[in-house]
Design a protein around this nucleic acid. Structure first.
Lengths: 183, 183
DNA sequence: CTTAGTGCAAAACCTTTGCAGGTTG
DNA sequence: CAACCTGCAAAGGTTTTGCACTAAG
């Protein structure tokens, strides 16, 4: 019980995000005549009070760690519900397991993703001009909902690492050559 | 044996795609001192002589159907190799299983994807201006390799279907209301 | 001949499903 | 108090792995 209150306190800082999401969820559930269960709101709060991106079982673990027990299946089902309700979006970068993020509000929060092909790290990049441009595209027979832009490449960290490896490899190969010549 | 020859004949029409891919694979394998096995070339040929998009086990089934036996694990390993070699690209639309496609050659073949949130169908759309624009984006510390743009929404087919359902539902509800009023 | 690559079967992984029991409206 | 939702365990589908054998260089 203390844990729950404490956890709630911790999340206060981000209530600006959670509050409208909670209102939206309530409206959605009422509209669909679905039940407003404590689990759904607890999961929603967790999503809207932590990092924008999350993995299903990280979220589950966090909830459990706070002393809030929900089954993993409920977490899966609930996230699926949130996706259908337009509160959460699913991403799958490269061959990584699925990630989710809360739906960005407006052009200012919208972003695209830089994905490192080596380490898999994902960086969100804001580019309002680009977002607006792509968001304004229209297709004759297709009713657009949203879009995802993933830019794949190599992050700075991995570039450095690869450079180092290359250098040490080159050194080894030079050494080998010398050795061969010396024979 | 006859099957193999026949299959090869069938694929002739797309050799314009396969030939440069084969050359590229050979160069890649030589560079990495990896082996040029018949399996790798057979899988590459199949990829470059059928639809641009494919699922791993469809590809495997097609090879088997032609009488060319490769294990599923080899198909997985080989596709992964092709991805690393820059010959094939991986896609994962919504919550569907992974799809792959051969890497588009130049701006003219490049495209983005419209994905239906209802039926999951994917449509490739060419938009050279857009592709060029996104392709020219540069990031200070990130070395871009390629990008994927997925536009999610509802395809025309599903729009029609949903419209029909709505209409028939509205009719039912009207009927119900009348019945209630009659009580 | 050395060892990477293959085939097969089993395991791992993430996600969904079936069913019994609890909770919402 | 009906039916929806949850929890649990088991199954599902896809992808990876371990190991013995084959074949490329």
């Amino acid at each position: 019980m203390i844990l729950r209150i404490f956890a709630h306190g911790m999340a206060m800082k981000d209530d600006k995000l959670y509050t409208p999401a909670r209102v939206a969820l309530t409206a959605y559930l009422k509209g669909k005549k679905m039940r407003r269960t404590p689990e759904r709101y607890a999961i929603l709060e967790k999503i809207f009070s932590t990092d924008a991106h999350f993995h299903v079982d990280d979220l589950h673990r966090k909830l459990e760690a706070e002393g809030y027990h929900v089954s993993l299946s409920t977490v899966y089902a609930t996230i699926q519900l949130f996706v259908e309700a337009g509160l959460v979006r699913r991403h799958q970068f490269g061959n990584q397991p699925a990630q989710y993020e809360r739906v960005p509000q407006g052009v200012n929060e919208s972003h695209h993703h830089l994905v490192c092909n080596v380490c898999g790290r994902v960086r969100a990049v804001k580019d309002p001009t680009l977002i607006e441009l792509i968001g304004n595209l229209r297709y004759p027979t297709f009713k657009t909902d949203f879009f995802s832009l993933y830019v794949y490449g190599i992050c700075s960290r991995c570039q450095k690492k690869l450079k180092k490896e290359k250098e040490s490899k080159a050194a080894t190969s030079t050494a080998k050559k010398k050795k061969t010549q010396n024979h």
